[in-house]
Amino acid sequence: MVGFSQVGAESDWRTANTESMKSTFTEANGYKLIFDDAQQKQENQLKAVRNFIQQDVDYIVIAPVTETGWDTVLQEAKDAGIPVIIVDRMIDVSDDSLYTAWVGSNFLQEGYDAVAWLGDYLKKNNRSDDDINIVTLQGTIGSSAQIGRTDGVEEKMKDYPKWKMLERQTGEFTQAKGQEVMESFLKTYQDIDVVIAENDNMAFGAIDAIKAAGKTCGPKGDIIIISFDAVAAAFDSMIAGDMNVSVECNPLHGPRVAEIIQKLEKGESVDKIAYVQEGVYPADTAAQEKPKRAY
């Protein structure tokens, strides 16, 4: 019996995350899943976890709304002898033994992947020796996705002395802000070669801004668009020829969580931190990949 407390249903990504859990922990697979939607409120999650403890579930899975405020309720779970697995966002607790394992995305690795893709792409197009000007649309400052992706890109960019980061500015993960900031970038810098948008929505905004400025983007255009998340709409954008690549942020946590539970059942030890597999999806394969996507 597994209790799962989900954040809510605020995006396609979240819906796919929920769906992955539900389809993994089916009765056919030998599980009984108790699902709770917290509607973006931590107090609902605390209530849900306490309910799980009372119902004496075997495992508790939490996709936390916030990082802090978990100590008390996780201590209760620990006292009841129920292992807790955290998915997606990390939690900040005084004692690491309060949870058994964490499953989620490696945002730093996503940043590395983006740089690696750009390096290969430029080499393929014989532009390795050119000066490359880059601007970044950052996510909401302080979010783990923003920190990981910004740091990952910055770290690996050092290997490419010809690349220059002109400016970074936050687009707060929204399409409207992404567009507004990109409009400003385009006026300040005349020769932008690459736009890195730390999520797909901001990339859509940036694409609109670029088109409005009379420039082109995508595989056949002047400006290369690199994005993160790889949601369904990003595949549409790549098929339309506007976006070059999107680095996946995989929401399909279910199988990985099940793996950990199986290990625990057998009495084996598990790694504290488990990353999910994430791919890089360039535009030229977008049309073939899209039908295979679960979200």
Binding site: E10, F173, Q175, A176, F204, G205
Partner: peptide, 16 residues
């Protein structure tokens, strides 16, 4: 106007 700018309804972010 805000919805037309992004040709979509982003319930979380419009007018935030």
């Amino acid at each position: 106007v805000a919805s037309s700018r992004i040709y979509s309804a982003d319930a979380n972010n419009i007018g935030l």
